[in-house]
Nucleic acid binder design. Structure first.
Length: 374
RNA sequence: CCGAAAUUGGUGAAGUGGUUAACACGCCGGAUUGUGGCUCCGGUAUGCGUGGGUUCGAUCCCCACAUUUCGGC
């Protein structure tokens, strides 16, 4: 069944929205954080563990699954849900647009599509908007992304301007290529930190009438948070009220809060799992590095108020030991904790929207998060 | 007891008669935002077994001593 979004309420003092996503007879509330499972797995976690964190939608990646194992194999395996055994909620696939940013050179990008070098065997690859849609249809995700060019915020204005136009043309091509009935397709707004480009990109993309809209091209350049928030503010006013809004690749706990206030519904980010693998844990009072020697004999949980599996059963000293020894169970415990932390944060944000006190929530959150460290 | 070789940071070690003693690991920190990478970036020996000597200058050359290893009686 096709994913459907319903707007339920807008917070009294901000653009923050409470919504729900319907899928297969289930409903999931937004704002929502979506764990990233690039290779059809949320790194180090079983689907059961992901679900226990409170997950709804989970991400997978078109480019990576195209290369390995190949979309045909995923399809043969019964589709992405069956293949990875995630049946709890919808699966969203990124189009490969981000890989244009992270893996291709600018000279590899043409009007027709993007040239890649296969990272496993060096063979030439060519990804186009039509190809991206075909792969996503074969994968069987519930929400597909348009194939876009994702840029660093610092890319020159003239390049951004030309790129936005191309991304719009690519969006149209992808939409025309999309044939399945039960899969949503989202358009992506680009335009860097520029008001005119964001506005133009949003208006033109919305004209193509997608099932939902993403805001892309943020938070991948070390741009200031102010610039990132501007990119959101310049895009959101032109997006329809009744469609889901997805801020791609974000993020940071504070950015979740600021994004929701600015009218964003869903987020995804690799940081909870990547930070975990590198020994970091989110807490209400900021990020902590479990490798720090001060945790060697700290027999308390990562967070006293956290209800995750790691916090219920394990101490900082134990996780410190695991991470220092490069044991995968340490990465798994921290991943569970970090994903739960972000999902729990969205639960609190939904509560604040219901209570019309999200600005107070933000002030308290910032005070704790950036205040005195634990 | 005699002879030979060795002695550089927490560890394994490179090195040279002349500015800040290589590198690796470890240790101490930091980074990380639509995941190529269990990755990346910093810091970490005022010191080269001890004491003398030669030299403008010694971790590097010489002497003695200590310790270790190997061989001989």
């Amino acid at each position: 069944m096709k994913v459907k979004y319903n707007l339920k309420k807008t917070e009294a003092h901000t653009k923050a929205r409470l919504g729900e996503i319907e899928w297969n007879g289930k409903t999931f509330e937004t704002p929502m954080f979506m764990p990233v499972g690039t290779q059809a797995t949320v790194k180090t976690l079983s689907p059961e563990e992901v679900i226990e964190c409170g997950s709804g939608i989970v991400l997978a990646n078109t480019y990576h699954l195209w290369l390995r194992p190949g979309e045909d194999i995923v399809k043969e395996g019964g589709g992405i849900h069956e293949f990875m055994n995630y049946h709890n909620g919808p699966i969203l696939t990124d189009s490969g647009g981000y890989q244009v940013f992270s893996l291709a050179h600018s000279k590899d990008i043409s009007e027709e599509g993007v040239k890649f070098k296969n990272q496993y065997d060096g063979s030439p690859l060519f990804l186009t908007p039509e190809k991206s849609i075909a792969i996503q249809e074969a994968l069987g995700s519930d929400i597909m992304m348009s194939f876009d060019e994702c840029l660093a915020a610092s890319a020159p204005y003239e390049y951004q301007k030309a790129s936005v136009e191309r991304t719009i043309r690519w969006a149209k091509r992808g939409k025309d290529a999309h044939k399945t009935e039960d899969q949503c397709l989202f358009g992506i707004v680009q335009g860097g930190p520029y008001e005119d480009l964001r506005k133009h990109s949003a208006i033109e993309t919305v004209k193509l009438d997608f099932d939902g809209y993403s805001i892309g091209g943020v938070a991948n350049d070390g741009e200031s948070k102010e610039d990132m928030y501007k990119a959101i503010d310049y895009s959101v006013p032109y997006l329809p009220e009744d469609k889901m809004r997805y801020l791609m690749g974000v993020g940071d706990p504070i950015d979740l809060v600021e994004g929701v206030i600015r009218g964003v519904d869903v987020f995804d980010c690799v940081t909870p799992t990547r930070l975990a693998r590198h020994g970091n844990a989110y807490t209400k009072y900021g990020k902590l590095n479990i490798k720090n020697s001060k945790y060697k004999r700290d027999f308390s949980p990562l967070s006293e108020q956290c209800d995750c599996y790691a916090c219920k059963h394990y101490t900082k000293a134990y996780i410190h030991h695991l991470i220092k020894c490069d044991e995968v169970f340490g990465a798994r415990l921290l991943s569970i904790h970090n994903i739960r932390f972000l999902i729990h944060l969205t639960e609190e944000l939904r509560e604040a929207i219901k209570n019309d006190n999200i600005l107070e929530f933000r002030d308290r959150f910032i005070e704790d998060y950036y205040g005195q460290k634990q």
